[in-house]
């Protein structure tokens, strides 16, 4: 149906694949369909994992057959197929970033690589909200889309073995930040004091796939103040609305 493929991922996984490219249009359909399926199926499925261009439904085949689940997926696909992607409002979560050299060891390289000044790289990086296509790799790691090609920079040839939590980086034309300390090959341009994942809090995740993130440049002092607020559990992220879809799509 409309190029959508239903594939197996083990005996308790059904993949609903909308395409094999990174596009805001495909990703919108992923989230839209995944949300509707979750609403329709409730406890009859285990969980849904949306990604760039597909989602994986975990189910217990002793409680619901793949056939029955597939029939429900097709029903929803038929429903959303005719519905135009209307205007909707997405959430933009502001992510404060300190771009000082202390936190962004590769910022000068990114500037030089693209024939820009360091300030120009910061201005471009903070100029627009980025869509969270999916979250993966580690808890809360956002795969963002929409970064300007003007600051695109290839990955490190030799990945770092340890990248501090909060590091903001660029890999090719992708950007994002590392929520927890991990290895990685991204060019590091700054660091955020906010945490994407706060275990033990009522709302443990700062954002979800389908939201937008916008980086904001802050000074070293502002960074320290926010870091303190986060540690004390009193940091409230700045959130704005963004009209998406409709003509823009």
């Amino acid at each position: 149906m409309d190029g959508v493929r239903l594939l197996a991922a083990g005996e308790q996984g059904l993949v609903v694949e909308f395409g094999d490219t990174i596009s805001a249009e495909i990703n919108f359909r992923v989230h839209q369909t995944a949300r509707k399926l979750t609403e329709l199926m409730g406890d009859r499925i285990i969980e849904v994992v949306p990604t760039y261009r597909s989602f994986l439904v975990y189910f217990n085949p002793l409680l619901i057959s793949r056939q029955e689940l597939s029939t429900n997926v097709e029903k929803i696909l038929a429903e959303v197929k005719n519905a135009q992607r209307g205007k909707s409002v997405a959430k933009v979560v502001k992510i404060p970033v300190c771009y000082d050299a202390e936190f962004g060891p590769d910022l000068a390289f990114v500037a030089e690589h693209n024939g820009l000044s360091v300030q120009e790289v910061i201005d471009i990086h903070t100029s627009t909200p980025y869509l969270v296509y999916m979250i993966g790799f580690t808890p809360g790691f956002p795969y963002l889309g929409g970064m300007s090609e003007r600051i695109a920079t290839p990955r490190l040839e030799k990945p770092r073995t340890k990248i501090p939590a909060g590091s903001v980086g660029i890999a090719g034309s992708q950007t994002g930040f590392y929520p927890i300390e991990s290895p990685g090959g991204w060019r590091l341009i700054g660091r955020t004091p906010v945490k994407a994942f706060m275990p033990g809090q009522a709302k443990p995740f700062l954002f979800e796939a389908g939201d937008y993130l916008q980086f904001q440049s802050v000074t070293r002092d502002e960074y320290a103040a926010i870091e303190q607020a986060v540690a004390e559990g009193r940091y409230v992220p700045e959130v704005a609305d963004l009209a998406v879809g409709g003509d823009e799509a």
Binding site: A9, G10, Y52, S54, Y58, G136, Y143
Partner: peptide, 11 residues
């Protein structure tokens, strides 16, 4: 290489 998608157990 693929455009990243979800990994099930045993993948």
């Amino acid at each position: 290489d693929i455009v990243s998608d979800a990994l099930c157990q045993g993948a």
